[in-house]
């Protein structure tokens, strides 16, 4: 190279170095902001879920602990009413029955809001109870398969329970399936929750982008706050399979 060419080449190399530095800076800032935005996002949905669950817990315990005893007292008082005629007697019995069913409904609602079994006996029993309830109420057959006792920290248990609940709701509401399999397994350091129905299936990506319902989004965000992974496999006509892979 002549001197002129050498100078030109040196200038090119300098420019290359500058471009390289800019690229490096770009990468580093991209990584840092990405991390930050993930953290903020996670905090946000965690806060949303916390608010939701705390509210539910409060309402559930208010219903159960405050209205329950009150209604029981009312029932006692009604039963103690001195009746004169046959008609009055029947009225009292009817009212007492109504109060019974109110108490029953109240218990159901409160249990739905924050399942007692889940809190007391853990995830496995919670889901078993859920499956029992829905088996009675719908023509869907539910097979729950879990051969170990699993105890996790309560937030995770609630999240997993809500996931199962939503999958169950969706299966009943949309899939037209008559069989839902749920299996829960704990490996060394992760929880695997898998469900499969034999219904009509749907396209997960397009539906979750439509943002019509909250259900699918909740599945995603609950999986996300637990740091897990959601895999949905579904083809039209072949049912829906979910796998939730959650680290513990």
């Amino acid at each position: 190279m002549h001197t002129q060419e050498e100078e030109f080449y040196r200038a090119i190399l300098i420019v290359a170095a500058v471009v390289g530095t800019i690229l490096l800076y770009f990468i580093i800032t991209a990584i840092r902001y990405h991390r930050k935005s993930i953290r903020m996002h996670k905090d946000k949905i965690q806060a949303e879920i916390d608010t939701l669950e705390n509210e539910r817990r409060r309402i559930a315990s208010d219903l159960h602990d405050e209205l329950g005893p009150l209604l029981s007292a009312v029932k006692l008082q009604i039963n103690n009413i001195e009746t004169v005629g046959e008609q009055d007697q029947q009225l009292v019995v009817k009212s007492s029955q109504h109060i019974d069913s109110i108490i029953q409904k109240l218990r159901e609602i409160s249990n739905n809001l924050m399942p007692n079994t889940l809190l007391r006996k853990g995830l496995k029993s919670g889901i078993e109870e859920l499956a029992e309830t829905y088996k009675k109420a719908s023509r869907l057959e539910i097979k729950f398969n879990c051969d170990q006792e699993i105890r996790l920290d309560q937030n995770k248990e609630i999240n997993l329970y809500r996931i199962v609940q939503e999958v169950l709701h969706n299966t009943i509401k949309h899939s037209g399936a008559n069989l839902l399999l749920i299996s829960l397994r704990k490996d060394d350091n992760r929880i695997l929750l898998a469900t499969a129905d034999n219904g009509k299936g749907f396209d997960y990506f397009s539906k979750s982008k439509e943002l019509k319902g909250l259900g699918l989004r909740n599945l995603q965000s609950r999986t996300e706050v637990m740091g897990g992974e959601l895999i949905c496999n579904s083809q039209p006509g072949k049912g829906v399979t979910y796998i939730f892979d959650i680290p513990v």
């Binding site: 190279m1 002549h2 060419e5 030109f8 080449y9 090119i12 420019v15 290359a16 471009v19 390289g20 690229l23």
Partner: peptide, 22 residues
């Protein structure tokens, strides 16, 4: 980025008799 850099450099030398080393 580097491709563009090098190619625009060559392009700006278009028509100039450059040495093989460059």
């Amino acid at each position: 980025s580097f491709y563009l850099l090098s190619r625009t450099a060559s392009l700006s030398l278009f028509g100039i008799d450059t040495s093989r080393q460059l």
